[in-house]
């Protein structure tokens, strides 16, 4: 049927167009159910409120603030991410749409689409949590640019490190607990780097070539490349 509605596309879709199609589809589903967003944001807000309520902005000495606040902020971000990022694949397994997805897109495109989706969730999470944290805790930051770069690259790292793990645990039993257990060791180097970076941005002890941001960017690159190589093995039956 030339020009008709059911024209089969052969060879005309690229990895990127497939990935973007999956990303947009996931966003649309997410807008309808708001399951992952609710889970992640409610977790994050609850933790933030608990931290802010119990510590407040005066309990910690000014000299200790840059480090301890960086730790608290990253604990909130990492564990909120771990609470909901596995949804991207678990929901396919629960809805029984895994096989349809396997047929309709190449594995790397699926990975990229899910990664974009997870990064969107993380972006929303950081956009809400980081400013609220700064306001509630009176977090004073000497180098806002460096701080923002650290938060953004750290967010990319969270997505890059966990997406392939989500694909694996979706096909295993005991999903929720397993996702955190598997992801955390992989994220730990990133988390340590990000804490250090945020601390240095807050103290203002020199951005020193943006070392932490560079490490985080390298982490993102390496995890993405390795995941792209390994993902087809995890994905295909």
């Amino acid at each position: 049927m030339k020009g008709g509605r059911w024209t089969t596309q052969t060879g005309s879709s690229t990895y990127l167009s497939e990935a973007i199609a999956i990303w947009l589809r996931d966003l649309r589903i997410e807008f309808r159910t708001r399951y992952a967003v609710n889970a992640i944001l409610m977790f994050a807000v609850t933790t933030l409120v608990a931290v802010s309520f119990s510590i407040g902005s005066f309990r910690i000495e000014a000299s200790e603030k840059p480090f301890l606040y960086a730790v608290l902020l990253w604990i909130i971000l990492v564990f909120s991410a771990l609470s909901g990022l596995s949804r991207s694949f678990v929901k396919e397994e629960e809805a029984g749409t895994m096989d349809a997805l396997r047929l309709s897109a190449r594995p790397q495109a699926v990975f990229l689409g899910k990664l974009f989706f997870n990064l969107t969730l993380l972006g929303a999470l950081e956009l809400i949590i980081v400013p609220s944290f700064i306001l509630l805790m009176k977090y004073e930051i000497e180098y806002p640019g460096f701080f923002a770069a650290m938060i953004i690259s750290g967010g990319f790292g969270l997505g890059a490190g966990t997406t392939i793990v989500a694909a694996m645990i979706a096909q295993a039993s005991a999903r929720g607990a397993l996702f955190s257990a598997l992801s955390f060791p992989l994220l730990l180097p990133l988390m340590i780097t990000a804490i250090k970076g945020c601390e240095r941005a807050a103290i203002g002890m020199g951005t020193a070539g943006w070392a932490e941001v560079k490490i985080a960017v390298a982490y993102v690159m390496i995890m993405m490349v390795v995941s792209l190589f390994l993902f087809p093995l995890v994905w295909e039956e």
């Binding site: 694996m168 005991a174 180097p189 780097t193 390795v226």
Partner: peptide, 30 residues
């Protein structure tokens, strides 16, 4: 934990191998 959570033996082996490589990639960062 991953090995014990995947019931299908073939898949279990693949996942464990993938995770092992993933974990090893993060070591240089440490």
């Amino acid at each position: 934990a991953l090995r014990s959570a995947v019931p299908d033996p073939e898949r279990k082996r693949v996942f464990a191998a993938v995770y092992s490589i993933l974990a090893f990639t993060t070591v240089p960062f440490l």
